[in-house]
Write a protein that binds this DNA or RNA. Structure first.
Lengths: 349, 349
DNA sequence: TTGAAAGCGCTAACAG
DNA sequence: CTGTTAGCGCTTTCAA
């Protein structure tokens, strides 16, 4: 019987015991304190000779300091937890990327989890992170209700930043400028001459949708229109949801000539619905979204959208969290700018 | 000056010290050993009365066991590390989701990081994970060269699973059946009558592309064709890369009538290139990809593709890793099935 | 069924 | 500049 087809088991079973400070100290003929002074590299004075011997022993023994012990002592793990509601919405990986990048650049690790749109999992994740003693938490994505986290977070008074929505509770937040985004989108559509608009929003719990709608209403008024110029359908941030919502809108007696979807995935769904109903985009129906996912540029017609500072939201959230961890004050709301990206799905050009 | 606009700083600065076993023990009038026996819940006998007092104290004090201390003692963190090359390729979040789900279901946490296509970051991430004493590691995605990890992983003999490619080194792998995928795709295209094919592959280091190409060649032979029936262009798994590669293919003197791209993102790029060159899909050019990302179904024309068991790859990798951690043997290669999903971009229907 | 005590690997006083 | 020592919070013998 071939054993090369199998790995693990006995051969990997016996890990050689990891070298410890004591091992290194013995090999380098110094005390454990000196080893620690060298490895933690905090500028504590150590003679060149001792340092060299320690370093040599470290590399010879393959010593890697045990952060568990270190963290236990220092009450600091240099790990932050990130919770997203759903990884299939491209918005979220982008945020995570921003978080991760800034975390890595500052020596932090990221403990990651997704509630997969089951809000009940939030509490157990937070418990887990509390047990692991993460230094702070980032709650990302509009789908997550930060107030549901309060019970779990509160007792530990864990440092927490909410990103992609604002919070009624105490948590500082990082958002895109959703009101401006709503204005930008609506103005673009109205300037194109459209007067019957359809809006496909996210779930009612998403503060982003509400803010964008508010911005939209302001611009409608500016154009002398009332909210009745817009039909609103609620959906769920998925292409499938956008498809269904668009069909619903387009089947009305006086259907919209333009649809603004709350993200690009829903906009793609809306474009598919239009195509399936024999409507050309943008001539019969203009469509736009929010996010500016990579694909938006490569659709034909390419998708007009509001570019959100997704990556920056993630990195900003991480920066703020580090400030919180360091005991510094942090603004309660941080709002990042957005941009209109005009493409073919509204203008044809 | 308003202070409500600012959070953190002094108010959150003073965390009440976390309750410890000792606090609970004192409150419940038992020893710390008894507290531990209750909280770790391993079936060690504890009288009902003592247990009740402990539980009461635990909830009253908001006690959450410190996993740092626990792990230090048990040499077990119940944390696994996951490294992906790049989160913007939707394939990877899907794998991560699978890992995360299985991890959560089994009480494991996931330490996450992305090398952002900079292979040099791999080593430092692995060091970090080694220091955090993760129980095992999952290297996900074709872009990652597991052999580059050997140096960092080897000395610690960390349990590692590679997913999305196979490894020349000792690491067990989980892959989709790329050879079958290549066969399926090629046969579909040839059966449609195409005889001049274009293939857009990923980077040469991705074993998946090579395996698919091998499958393709077998089918070409089956149809009495040689490899000259296929022009191959190497690209990078991005829509942008697919766009450029497709243009290159379509500008040749006898351009392909069908393009098989190595993932859906590149296929979307290829469809855009076709549209921009005035070619209709599928009549002038058939296009297909691999992955079956959500968007594929909502493009118009919708995208024919090979559905990869992405999520399952992630969950399988995590299952195997847990076996490895538990000292069990594991197959060196695990290959999961794929499916052809026929849509409009090849057939028009 | 319970408690006392040792110690996981590390760092931070403190003394030299 | 260096070493000794105490102890982070927990689990686990061992003995009662």
């Amino acid at each position: 019987m071939e054993t090369t087809a199998v790995a693990g088991g006995d051969d990997l079973g016996e890990r050689p015991r990891q070298a410890t400070v004591r091992d290194v100290a013995r090999e380098a003929n110094v005390s454990t304190a000196t080893v620690s002074r060298v490895t933690s590299n905090k500028g504590y004075p150590v003679s060149a000779a001792a340092r060299a011997r320690v370093l040599e022993a470290v590399s010879r023994l393959g010593y890697s300091p045990n952060d568990l012990a270190r963290s236990l002592l220092q009450e600091r793990t240099f790990t932050v937890g990130v919770v997203v509601p759903d990884l299939s919405n491209p918005h979220h990986p982008d945020i995570v990327r921003g978080v991760e990048e800034t975390a890595a650049a500052n020596g932090y690790s990221v403990q990651f989890c997704s509630t997969d749109n089951e809000p009940d999992r939030l509490a157990s994740y937070l418990d887990q992170m509390a047990s692991k003693r993460v230094d702070g938490i980032i709650l990302a994505g509009g789908g997550l209700d930060p107030d549901r986290a309060l019970g779990a977070i509160g007792p530990f008074r864990m440092r927490t930043i909410v990103v992609g929505r604002y919070s009624n509770s105490v948590f500082p937040s990082v958002e895109s400028d959703n009101r401006a985004a709503g204005q930008l989108a609506t103005r673009h559509i109205l300037e194109l001459g459209h007067r019957r608009l359809g809006a496909i929003t996210g779930p009612a719990t998403a503060t982003a949708s509400a803010d964008r709608l508010a911005g939209a209403l302001e611009v409608l008024k500016e154009f002398g229109l009332t909210s009745r110029a817009t039909s609103v359908v609620e959906s769920d941030f998925s292409a499938e949801g956008g498809y269904a919502a668009a069909k619903k809108l387009l089947k009305r007696k006086s259907p919209p000539t333009a649809i603004i979807a709350s993200n690009d995935a829903m906009a793609i769904g809306a474009m598919a619905a239009a195509a399936d109903m024999g409507l050309g985009v943008p001539n019969d129906l203009a469509v736009m979204g929010y996010d500016d996912i990579v694909t938006a540029r490569f659709l034909r017609p390419s998708l007009t959208t509001i570019a959100l500072p997704t990556h920056e939201m993630g990195s900003t959230a991480m920066s703020l969290l580090m400030q919180l961890i360091d005991g510094e004050a942090v603004p309660q709301r941080t709002i990042l700018g957005v941009d209109l990206v005009v493409r073919q799905s509204t203008t044809g050009r």
